[in-house]
Computed example of a mutant assay.
Amino acid sequence: MPAISKKGQHMPQSPIRKLVPYAELAYSRGKTVYHLNIGQPDIKTPEIALDAVRVHSLDILAYTRSEGSDKYRAKIADYYSKHDIQVTKDNIIVTTGGSEALMFAFGSVMDTDDEIIIPEPFYANYNGFSTASGVNIVPVISKIEDNFALPPIEEFEKLITPKTKAILICNPGNPTGYLYSKEEIGKLADIVKKHDLFLISDEVYREFAYDGIAHYSIMQEEGIADHAIMIDSVSKRYSMCGARIGCLVSKNKEVINTALKFAQARLSPPTLAQIASEAALQTPQSYFDGVIEEYVERRNTLISELEKIDGVKVAKPKGAFYCIVELPVKNSDAFAQWLLESFDVDGETVMVAPAAGFYSTPGVGLNQIRIAYVLNQESLIKAVSILKEALKVYKD
């Protein structure tokens, strides 16, 4: 039998999706499963975006430009200007989701065996993107005791080698919900300038900032235009995960020109999804005000319920819709599988994402899970009550 590539063998499974067969088994047994494992918002997609697809007048579903349509990119630039981010359409490459934008960024600024420093825990697919690109992640650990704040800059400096090409952050963070401050972004800006590195910021959760704290983008930071690469997506902002439209944004012309070559190789982003995404830019602020209010209430409910469970530690998120929870178990992978295979309360159970997959350091995060609070408050309360009962009887 022909051999599978080493890259393929090393490609990590998704910690979010790998338990799906066990969830399907639970369904087959008639169980109800509360999904706390995946960041699929239950908020309705803006009607204006759906209507744009329903009533389009296209006769041919043709290719668009590899970098995305001029009209859409110009409107994205206008959207950013409202958030104090001054860019033009020529600074933007439209991509097939934020995932492709990250792949383009990795391919544009790093070669095989180069290194990228990422505070962990981090979005699990960063592991996959790095493996696919032949790039090595060098983690710097943030801690639940510090609410996953930016680690001291000295910890970053210790890790920089001649192979280091970039630092990557997610702001607000998946899976931690941490929102980096202007001061923290300034510290990162100083270090990338000092060591001539790129600063890549995954900002797909920009609108999801709580407690009156404003999101601060790396594109607002002065003096790092040639270092800054921003990753964005419509997926969470407009509850349009299935549209698969994102973008890479940079004022560095060489980065944009290089990313464009990767974009040309895959031809173009999806046409209908761009039409929907362009229309979504007209979504009124009232939509976001309502969404933020809802997520703040969900967050507060979730944290309050979790803090009632003995032995559980939880970091309070300042953005996005995730939190990391430390459980009194040795292995959350085994616990998550057990919940689906062997436990229920009156025919109901919960599905969580084991957090070890959000780290690249072996053995870290084994007793943690990520919870996505994308369910309504009643369901969140029910799900946490099931989790509480499960912890009472679970044996490692």
Rank of each mutant, 00 (worst) to 15 (best):
L19Y: 09
I153D: 04
P152Q: 04
T258R: 00
A320P: 06
C170A: 12
N91C: 03
Q86G: 05
G365K: 06
D90H: 04
Q40I: 13
S360E: 03
G357P: 01
V296F: 03
Y295M: 04
M219Q: 10
D59G: 15
T112D: 09
G173T: 02
I60D: 03
L61W: 13
W338K: 11
D114W: 09
D70H: 11
V94S: 10
M230N: 10
A52H: 00
S57H: 11
I144H: 14
N376K: 00
L36E: 04
A26S: 08
T131K: 06
L340S: 09
V312R: 04
M219R: 13
V329Y: 11
F321H: 12
L58A: 09
L327I: 11
Y79M: 06
Y63G: 13
V55G: 13
T361C: 10
D289F: 03
A74T: 09
K163F: 07
M11W: 07
M11K: 08
S14I: 08
H227S: 06
K163L: 11
A315I: 08
A263Q: 02
L36C: 00
K313H: 09
F358Q: 08
Q274I: 12
P119A: 07
N125R: 07
F262I: 06
T95D: 12
S108L: 02
A74W: 06
E145N: 09
I116H: 10
T96W: 03
K71S: 15
L380I: 13
V94E: 14
E389L: 12
I245Q: 02
G134R: 05
V135N: 01
P12S: 00
R244L: 11
V53K: 15
S142D: 00
S360L: 00
L188A: 07
Y22P: 00
F156E: 04
L61D: 05
K253Q: 13
A52G: 00
I117G: 12
Q337N: 12
E294W: 05
P46S: 04
I381M: 09
T45R: 05
Y287E: 02
K388M: 06
K313V: 06
K182R: 07
A356V: 07
I167T: 02
Y287R: 06
Y287Q: 08
P362Y: 03
K182Y: 05
N136V: 14
T96D: 11
D396T: 07
I371C: 14
E341M: 12
E183F: 14
C323Q: 11
Q337A: 02
R73P: 13
D232W: 14
